[in-house]
């Protein structure tokens, strides 16, 4: 499974930006539409898509998309 590719698709859908290409280094500062309310929708969509649940503590320290993807991979491998 290409987690980054799936996450990119989720970002495009939630942020309604068909041209958006994210990398592991992408942060909210790089994407205009990635505001606090859209962040909630992004996390909800990720939890639904990958059929997993995060805690508030688990997502609090994500610094970029790469750390988000690593957390997803860790959950999926558990």
């Amino acid at each position: 499974m290409d987690i980054l590719k799936d996450v990119n698709t989720i970002f495009i859908d939630v942020l309604e930006n068909d041209d958006l290409v994210i990398t592991r280094e992408t942060t909210s500062a790089d994407v205009e539409e990635w505001d606090s309310l859209n962040h909630i929708q992004l996390v909800v969509s990720i939890e639904k898509h990958f059929k997993l649940k995060f805690s508030a503590n688990e997502i609090r320290n994500w610094k970029n998309v790469g750390e988000m993807c690593d957390a997803i991979a860790l959950k999926l491998s558990a």
Partner: peptide
């Protein structure tokens, strides 16, 4: 319920 972002559906 989405505890991570304190949201409910």
């Amino acid at each position: 319920i989405f505890e991570s972002v304190n949201a409910v559906e």
